[in-house]
Computed example of a mutant assay.
Amino acid sequence: MNEVVLRLAQPSDAAAIQRIYGYYVENTAITCEVAIPSLTDLTERIKKTQQRFPYLIATLGDQVVGFAYVSPANPRYAYQWTVETSIYVDRNCRGKHVGTKLYDMLEKICRQMKVVNMTAHIVYPHDDQPDQHLTLASPKFHEAYGYKLAGRFYKNVYKFGKWYDMLWMEKSIAKHDDAPTPIVNFNEIKSQFFN
């Protein structure tokens, strides 16, 4: 039986990322994008993220089955200890703990980077009822993973002819020290996690 293996994303992973992400763009309200990004766009996103932060790939056998990364919650200096997480798992591989493995690794890396807060921005049904474009799986996953609701923006997202809310969830992974250590660029520590 194959095991889920994590590695760093490469520009050549853009096509696999597009395959996984494209389904969510076209069929769900999980992402606010309405057009599938081009391979060039996705390649540039990988490169930009990896200038400072981890961009991870999950494989099962020889197939890419998920990806996750963190990015600044806000580019201004005083926000540096807070990141936003993004995670997508191949719709045919849900229930195989791919998301958990990706999040476990992201959290380990972020702790080493001196990140204090991890956040997730999650589209949510305005009437609290799932529909054909949106389940409640993401907020439930994040809650089980220790994230707490920090805020809710009402009718903040419009997709598929319907208004959706946006939840902001957060998880503190370190103490809020009075003099926090500046975060470390992932490239300075990535050898601790990947060869």
Rank of each mutant, 00 (worst) to 15 (best):
G22D: 05
D131V: 05
A73H: 07
A15K: 15
H121K: 15
K47V: 04
I17T: 10
H97W: 08
F186C: 12
K155H: 01
N27M: 07
T82K: 10
I36V: 14
A68L: 04
S12P: 11
E3F: 14
V83H: 10
S138Q: 05
A179Y: 12
A174S: 06
D178T: 14
P139S: 05
H121T: 12
Y154I: 10
M105W: 09
V34D: 01
L6S: 01
F194Q: 03
T181K: 15
L39F: 00
P182E: 12
Q18I: 08
S71G: 12
A179G: 08
P37S: 01
V157W: 03
N2R: 15
E26P: 06
P125T: 02
Y154Q: 11
E143D: 03
E170Y: 09
L149F: 12
G146P: 11
G61D: 03
M105P: 11
E188S: 14
I57Y: 07
N74I: 04
Q18L: 06
G99S: 13
S172V: 02
V70P: 07
S38Y: 02
V83N: 10
N27A: 03
T40S: 10
V98M: 00
K171N: 02
D104L: 12
S172A: 03
Q80R: 15
S172K: 08
D165E: 03
A150G: 13
H97V: 08
Y21K: 08
W163D: 00
V4L: 03
T59G: 00
A15P: 13
Y164T: 05
D41G: 07
E84W: 04
Y145N: 14
G161Y: 06
T85E: 15
T28A: 06
T135P: 12
A15L: 14
R76I: 03
L39R: 11
T40V: 12
V4Q: 08
Q50C: 01
Y164K: 00
E170W: 03
L106A: 13
S172P: 01
R94K: 09
E33Q: 10
L8H: 08
N92H: 14
I87Q: 13
H142T: 09
G95L: 11
V184H: 06
Y21V: 09
W168Y: 10
I173C: 01
R152Q: 04
